[in-house]
Amino acid sequence: MNIDNIELDQVRQARSEIQGLDIDVYGLIKRFGDRQVLHGLDLAIAPGEFVAIVGRSGCGKSTLLRLLAGLDGESAGEIRLDGRPAAAHKEDVRMMFQDARLLPWRTVIQNIAIGLTGSRQEVRERALEVLARVGLADRADEWPARLSGGQRQRVALARALIHKPRLLLLDEPLGALDALTRIEMQRLIESIWKQQQFTALLVTHDVSEAVALGDRIVLVEEGRITLDESVALVRPREHGEPAFARLESRVLKRLMTIEAVTSRNQIRGRVADIVLDDVLSEVRIETPAGVVTSTVLTRSLSEQPLEIGAEVLATFKSNEVVLAAA
């Protein structure tokens, strides 16, 4: 009887070490002063699921992650991680930020060991092991300032992984990387997630990244979830596949319609010219500010035809407008 209980405990413990956290969020509200950021958000995520969150900047994605990490408290509503409040699971939850947030005065390996306890030797061995998993074993004793942006994010990933998290929160961690490094990192994150089976929540502004990695894509709008779409593509997903591109353009279109509702960064104009091509076509729009060119998937053009001379609204993301001195 007694022995059975101990065994049961051990099994339970072993399982909880492997398994991801189960997330349940009901009616989550967060206010900063008079400003309400989350307006009764509901979200349920199964253990081991990979959920990608998209949404325009300022809609409350980071706030949601910070609440899940227990870094801040909710104003109302409830967060349950395996049935318990977020504060009870701080050890199981790790977060990766857009900037790697490495301590510049610590070497790579010391950064990874932050918050670990145990003998020096043992900590170093464990740190070297995770460092090898992210492909940076040979940079263990360097200063972070010597690494490239992608390498720094790898170190940040290793620092999170060494704690064997059951929930990994990723707040636009690849946003500042170049396209090639980004795809490499996506593959790395995916393969580690598969091995360790933690629950993963990835905030991204890159819809193709959301489609590449998410089991589900969730759209947050004004502090609520307004789209929750399962991604039924087999992994690993190729960016060129037709099903991939279809889903990507659907989510993008949904995002763009939200953006069109707001009055920022938009120019009214008339379609002046359409240059058709196999995959991507160009639509040139005459606006009071000059000609604006929009690259559109040819497929979505055939689904939603445009005519020359039609009145359109060109909207663009504020973080993709490049400024140069005039």
Binding site: A69, K90, R94, M95, R101, W105, R106, I114, G115, H163
Partner: peptide
């Protein structure tokens, strides 16, 4: 503050947060 937040989320508080992040950052 981003580094302090990072340290907190990795379980540093009180003196260890001071020694690892605040003092070296102010040095």
């Amino acid at each position: 503050p981003a580094l302090i937040e990072m340290g907190r989320s990795y379980g540093l508080k009180g003196w260890s947060l001071y020694r690892e992040i605040i003092l070296p950052g102010a040095l």
